[in-house]
Amino acid sequence: MFQQRSPLQVTLHVWHALFMREAMARITGDRLGWAWVFLEPIAHLLIFVGLRYLMGSVKYINGAEFMPWFIVGMVTFLLFSVVMNRSINAITSNRALFAYRQVHPVDTILIRAVLEGLLKTLVFGLVILGAMIFGISIVPVDAIFAVFIWFVMWCFGFGIGLVLSVPVTSTQEFGKFVNILNMPLYMLSGVMFPIQFLPREVRDFILYNPLFHAVELMRSAFFPGYQLMQGISLQYLVFWTLSLVLLGLMLQIRFKARLLAQ
């Protein structure tokens, strides 16, 4: 006789199956496969490494060397960007699986976000090792705080993915507008240049961006004596993160029937 599975066991089996499916799709989805996961941050480094020379005599930013400062900010932002962009299309990509009543739309978003988070964590570790080979020291002075900010940044991307997946699934064209926002957010999150160099009015406006708080807090976890700009707040970042995750979950419950019927 077959033993009846508990709801928790069913959920864990669904998540495992979805994870394996997503992992295989990452390998076989295109010619580059998982190689692009590692090539993407390298491409960013190669494109923007010229900034180090364009900035001339600027070797330190707020107490941190320029290249480690840039690498930490870049990889931290990419975690958010990749998790968000991959999550918003998770429902559409896994539509055939909804024929099984055990699979819910939110499951596909969660598993895709988890996979991307694990991959970006692996990439960050390899970037740190690669930088050390070339004599660039990127070792966090507060590893626990760095892991916490990394997790919060993942949750932020997951929350945005939950929220935006609803309109993107209903209206595919909406996803194009989301992609357009990536570069402005990249610029406004203090990844490429220090926001402190901008006029006060611009700095006050950028402080409304929680991603800027996350990037700066991550840098403070890596560099001893890093000088945070006045107004950077962990509470502000956590508030936005929790709000987005809760809002996203509510939207997934409210529009579940519509998402399944699309």
Rank of each mutant, 00 (worst) to 15 (best):
242 L>W: 04
19 F>M: 03
5 R>L: 15
247 L>Y: 05
226 Y>K: 09
51 L>V: 06
79 L>G: 07
162 L>E: 02
170 S>N: 14
43 A>Q: 14
183 M>Q: 12
238 V>I: 13
169 T>K: 01
22 E>M: 03
188 L>K: 08
26 R>P: 07
18 L>R: 01
82 V>N: 06
50 G>R: 07
221 A>K: 08
43 A>P: 08
206 I>E: 03
168 V>A: 04
50 G>C: 07
125 G>K: 07
215 V>L: 09
8 L>W: 04
227 Q>G: 04
233 S>E: 07
34 W>Y: 15
251 L>P: 03
201 E>C: 07
69 W>P: 00
218 M>W: 00
97 L>T: 02
205 F>T: 10
250 M>G: 14
206 I>G: 04
95 R>M: 11
206 I>P: 00
139 V>C: 11
246 L>E: 11
52 R>C: 11
250 M>W: 15
46 L>E: 01
156 F>G: 02
164 L>H: 01
144 I>F: 13
62 N>K: 10
202 V>L: 11
89 N>S: 12
215 V>F: 06
19 F>T: 02
204 D>H: 08
233 S>R: 07
148 F>V: 12
195 I>R: 05
181 L>D: 05
81 S>P: 02
179 N>F: 05
177 F>W: 15
58 V>Q: 11
236 Y>N: 06
105 P>Q: 03
59 K>I: 13
158 F>H: 06
196 Q>R: 15
198 L>Q: 09
21 R>D: 01
59 K>R: 15
96 A>N: 06
247 L>F: 11
121 T>G: 06
164 L>C: 02
96 A>D: 07
98 F>D: 00
145 F>E: 12
141 V>Y: 09
209 N>A: 06
11 T>F: 10
246 L>G: 10
59 K>G: 12
41 P>L: 06
83 V>P: 02
126 L>P: 05
89 N>Q: 11
25 A>C: 10
27 I>E: 09
80 F>Y: 07
44 H>W: 15
193 F>Q: 01
141 V>I: 11
202 V>P: 05
262 Q>Y: 11
223 F>K: 00
11 T>A: 14
148 F>A: 06
218 M>D: 02
241 T>R: 04
209 N>E: 01
172 Q>S: 15
63 G>D: 03
112 R>N: 04
84 M>K: 15
110 L>C: 09
217 L>K: 00
177 F>R: 15
208 Y>M: 15
81 S>R: 00
49 V>H: 09
171 T>W: 09
9 Q>E: 04
3 Q>F: 14
3 Q>L: 14
35 A>L: 08
177 F>H: 12
72 V>E: 00
255 F>V: 10
115 L>E: 00
207 L>E: 00
38 F>M: 03
119 L>D: 10
11 T>R: 15
